[in-house]
Amino acid sequence: MRYVDKTVIGLTIAFLVLLAANFFLAEWMRFIGLQSLARGAVALGLLVLWRSGLISFGHALYFGFGAYTAVMLSLAGFSDAFILVFAATLMSGLLAFVIGFLLRRYRAIFFALLNMAFSMILYGVVVKTEALGSTDGFGVGTPTFLGYAPDGEAVQTTLFLFTLVFTYLITVGVHIYMQTTLGYMSMAVRENEIRVEYLGYSAEKVIHVKYVFSGLVAGFGGGIMALAIGHVDPDSMANWTVSGEFVFITILSGTGSVAATYIGALVFELIRTYAFEYAPQMWQFILGGSLLAIIMFLPDGIWSLIGRLRKAKA
C-alpha cells in the first residue's frame, strides 16, 4: 500500500473510465485513443530519460524496430497480439541494451544526435531492403488475442482494451519507480554526475538502465501502432521526423507527471489529425506553430496549466 498515492488513484480512475468508454467510443475516437496511448508510451520512455537531462532525437529507431518486429512476425504467420507486442517490446529493449553501451557515454546534444544517427541507419536499411518492404512497407494481418479472433469493430475494441491494460500497468510502474532510489538517480545524474561518481555509483549505469527502459516502451508503442494502423512503412515509423514528434510530445507534456505524457500525446494526435483533415497543405505549419507556442508560452508543458489553475483558484 505504501506505493498508492494520488497519481496512482488518478491513473486507476482514468483507466476504469476509458475501459468503460471503450464500449461507447466512436471508431475514429478509439483510433485516436489508440495512437495516443502508443505515442504516449514512447514519450513516457523519453520522459524517464529527460529527467536525467537527456533527450533522444532518435527514438523512432526503437518505435520502428518494434513495429517492424511485429510486422515481420505477423508475416511469418504469428497473429497473437501478445506475441507480436511482447516481441516488439523485447527486441527494441534488446537493441537499446546493445546500443546503450555506446550511448551511455554521451550527454547533451551528442546523445540526442547519436540517437538520430542510429535511427537513420535503421531507416536507411529499411528503405533499401526489398525484404523489409522498402519504402512501401507492409500490411499487418488482423491480430488475435490468446486464441480469441475478433472481427469487425471488435478487433479495435479488443486491441484498445489490450493496449489500455498494458499502458496502465507500465505507467503505474513508472510512477512508482520514480519514487525509488533508482528513479531519483535521474535527478542526481542530471544535476551532478561528478558527485554521483564520488558517492560510489556509476552515472553511466543509471543512464543505461533508463535507456533500455525507454527502448522497451518505444518498442511497445511501435508494436501497438503497427497493429492499430495495420500498416508499417519507414516514413511514418522510422524517419527522424517521427523522432521529432516524440520529443514534441515530451516537451508538450512536461516532466510534471506520468499522466501528462498521454494527455500530451492526445493533444498532439488531435492537432495532427484535425490539421491534416482541414488543412492538408498546412498541417506541418500548424504543428510547428503549436510547438513554438508551447515552447514560448508554456515552458513546463501542459501539466503546468493544472498547477496554474489551482493557483488561480486558491
Binding site: Q179, T180, T181, G183, Y184, M185, M187, A188, R195, L199
Partner: peptide
Amino acid sequence: VFMSETVFENLLMAYAIVEDTGLAMLSPI
C-alpha cells in the same frame, strides 16, 4: 552538490546511493 535540491534531499540522495545497491535501488528512496 545537487544544486537545485535542498540540503536534506542532497543528503537523502547520498544516503540512498550508499545504502541501496542492486535491487534495493528499486525500493522507495
